[in-house]
Design a protein around this nucleic acid. Sequence first.
DNA 1: CCTCATTCCTGCGGGC
DNA 2: TGCCCGCAGGAATGAG
Length: 277
Amino acid sequence: MPELPEVETVRVGLDKWVVGRTIAAVEISHPRSIRRHIAGARDFAQLVTGRTVTGTRRRGKFLWLPLDSGDAIIGHLGMSGQLLVQPMAAPDEKHLHIRFDFTDKGLQLRFVDQRTFGGLAVSIGGAELPKEIAHIAKDPLEESFVDKEFLAALRKKRTAVKRALLDQKLISGVGNIYADEALWRARIRGDRASDEISRPAAQRLLNHVKDVLREAIVEGGTSFDALYVNVNGESGYFDRGLNAYGLEGEPCSRCGTPIKRSAFMNRSSFFCPRCQR
DNA sequence: CCTCATTCCTGCGGGC
DNA sequence: TGCCCGCAGGAATGAG
């Protein structure tokens, strides 16, 4: 499930394989995958054909490819989206929705997405920062991320602390897995009121968020199945480093108490009932 | 403005 | 064996 570390792993792959190359053609076989590009498939193709990819950028779970036109191809992987770099002769993936060919007739870029929650769009003038993601907060691994602003926002909110971690307008890049992991490390229960967390505890939680994201990037992300892969179709290994997520009934690695699972925000939360208060 | 539930989607696995 | 149903969940949307 692509959260910040998984998207970063994909970005690094794209940086290696796609930057500097010129798009020769784009084939869109599933309109839902470009639903955020309001002007439609033909407009999308027109804007990217003949353009050269000049870099790769990411904020939170969004990534974008600046083009030499000043526009950018912006992408979100959703639940199951993959950006794969494949030989032209490789057979079509079952859920292949968008294919980019390059003028050098080398490896193709393919957007594959089983559940179609993800998608691509062209952001006009978005090379530096697409306006489509301007409403998203900076992610905690950006140098310009300001801890104090997040801590203040946490205090101002009247909601559960896990909900705040998942709120991309407060802090971007954190999804269900890393939220549970950071809360476990900080020994805080996710349903605690965000404005009742002490300032030192909130700072510790933020530090754990940063740590767990960084550690997962080193491992190439977390995956439980073939749905999250890097641009070469390979899975990450961070699932070995998890202490809470998906471990219902397993002994907490700190205190041995079985990890509990509960429904929260229409999804599962995993936590240690003893050492998370 | 703020908070929160709902909706989108498909493959898989459990239960009967 | 086969079918049905629940589950996985990021972000946009709209209700209250």
